[in-house]
Nucleic acid binder design. Sequence first.
DNA 1: GTTGACAGGTGTACATCGTATACCTATCGT
DNA 2: ACGATAGGTATACGATGTACACCTGTCAAC
Lengths: 229, 229
Amino acid sequence: MPQRERLTRERVVRAAVDMADRDGVDDVSMRRLAADLDVVPMALYKHVANKAELLDGMVDQVINEIAPPQEHLPWKQAVRTRILDARQVLLRHPWARRVMESKAAPTPTALGYMDSMIAIFVAGGLSLDLTHHVMHALGSRIFGFSQELFTESAGVQPDPAMAAQLAQAFPNVVAVAQGVEHDPDSVIGPGCDDQFEFEFALDLQLDAVERLHENGWRSSVARAAGTAP
Amino acid sequence: MPQRERLTRERVVRAAVDMADRDGVDDVSMRRLAADLDVVPMALYKHVANKAELLDGMVDQVINEIAPPQEHLPWKQAVRTRILDARQVLLRHPWARRVMESKAAPTPTALGYMDSMIAIFVAGGLSLDLTHHVMHALGSRIFGFSQELFTESAGVQPDPAMAAQLAQAFPNVVAVAQGVEHDPDSVIGPGCDDQFEFEFALDLQLDAVERLHENGWRSSVARAAGTAP
DNA sequence: GTTGACAGGTGTACATCGTATACCTATCGT
DNA sequence: ACGATAGGTATACGATGTACACCTGTCAAC
């Protein structure tokens, strides 16, 4: 009988992703991961060069969960649906944002994803130059990041006395937060970083790009506009 | 004679910021910091609760380097110049981006900064609701982040054989990168995350917001537009 | 079959990290 | 002069990533 299923890079990475989903990425250590796989810590190093490479593998697995672009769609829609899909994937693996952001170089998998995204713009007729700037402007949103800064009002603030103090110290922050909460039409999800905010920002940018493109954007024009007072 | 200058929370935090600027934030450990201050590691804990609080203090110091908003300016210009100033500050402290992004709750200092930024929009006549969404849309750009994903093409790729292989595997990425490099008009700075890209993205968003505002934006309208196919 | 190479799992060890706890000591208001 | 207290010290613990040497089970070739 096979006393224990053989280890594989595949199996190691998959277990690490599961553990990160479950306990958060900070609690993924080589030793805990090894224990999870019923193996001695150093055994992992036969399948993974070091922890950085393990994290690379984890991110790659997440990126591979993003569906390939839909063909035969206008570029704006194709980009939009793909990014929203990426966002769904990243909501399943919230730790991936921080890991990706702390990496210096993209893996081939990440490059491939960016490549396919660029392809959509180019196929849609956008110039290479405009596409380049757009990729920068979209930034990490391409990977579906919610880049939420702080998980705004993450914890409930139960203390009413402190709430009053807050309101005095930061009246505008509180006004914006409360104003929206009191608006019955507003879409306020948990942590306020919900689907609406993401789509709002995404559409703002995509619409602006579309407008630029339709107006026959050339780099000199935009540069002048950008640096003008 | 004062055998050694007394330690202060101020002095500790300042030394930590200097060390992070010099060696990168990953090399800032309580022990190295203590050695730098010619003191035993545990001495730091008399001025700082723990490392997380130290990082908070470091970020606060960076935020405090950002100039206060200029009065008597139209909101768009006021926001624009302030964010560009924030960007300059963050370029001096590149580590601050990652630290801020990995924090869950904002410090009072960060809240104060956001508060003063919101104040600009509100004073400019934007509705609380629109301001709220705009703050989300701008996201970390408010703090001047370049959110560069990967320090794109950070290292030079000297190997021509690998370059060819790259071009075959990721034709679009290479095309976009090369196309721009070959354009003599293009502004390509080190790492390609230069001033132009940042301003391009920032203006794209600010212009879009201005258009929304001038068209008398109401939340229901934007929501319908956002979720429409 | 026997053998021998080698992929893959093991054991031990080390430097480094954050920090709890207990202690000592210089300073200062009374 | 004295005792409280703020601030620096000493020691120690558990956790982390991983280098290095070792063992062992599997399988190809003879």
